[in-house]
């Protein structure tokens, strides 16, 4: 098993969807496993009575801290070991609960060649099984050109301005 070839800039078209990342159905166990790994003791993630009666929530909550890394995974999987997920921004607008299946998605909104590499802009988000968007955002990914070198690692944005 070697490096994973990620997306190549020349193949990218504006409006194109990138491969989705699907997680779930999420259960209480998934939420507790993440909370314990993070040592996050916010009661809304494991104490049903507190979440529903004290905070008035519909159920315990899937952690925003978990969802954010799924968004990064979406981009890192697409970039592979030859590109680089450079920037990612999103807002936590929706609540997700046990039973939800979450689909992280991305769509290309722009592309620009920069030096020996290409920069791709995306709209991103995370839908639940009802198609409701809960984590809208944007991202910028750097990709190699066809036949060109992989994006240098560690990533330094200055490589985009080099000839």
């Amino acid at each position: 098993m070697g490096d994973t070839q990620g997306a190549v800039f020349d193949d990218i078209e504006i409006g194109q969807d990138i491969p989705k990342v699907v997680k779930g159905p999420m259960t209480t166990a998934h939420i507790v496993r993440w909370s314990a790994a993070m040592e996050n003791w916010h009661r809304i993630h494991y104490d049903w009575k507190y979440a529903t009666e004290h905070d008035g929530l519909p159920d315990i909550m899937v952690n925003g801290s978990w969802k954010q890394h799924v968004m990064i995974q979406l981009l890192a999987d697409w970039a592979g070991d030859t590109g680089w997920a450079w920037k990612v921004a999103f807002q936590f607008r929706g609540m997700n609960v046990p039973g939800d299946t979450l689909t992280a998605w991305g769509r290309v909104t722009g592309k620009e060649r920069r030096g020996r590499f290409g920069v791709v802009d995306l709209e991103i988000g995370m839908l639940d099984q009802k198609g409701q968007e809960g984590t809208p955002g944007t991202a910028r990914v750097v990709l190699p050109l066809r036949g060109g070198p992989p994006v240098p690692y560690p990533f330094d944005p200055a490589v985009l301005d080099a000839g």
């Binding site: 925003g64 801290s65 954010q68 990064i72 680089w84 997920a85 450079w86 920037k87 990612v88 921004a89 999103f90 807002q91 936590f92 955002g137 560690p154 990533f155 330094d156």
Partner: peptide, 9 residues
């Protein structure tokens, strides 16, 4: 948590 903007190196 309202959200994040990340720049990754």
């Amino acid at each position: 948590n309202g959200g994040y903007e990340y720049e990754l190196f």
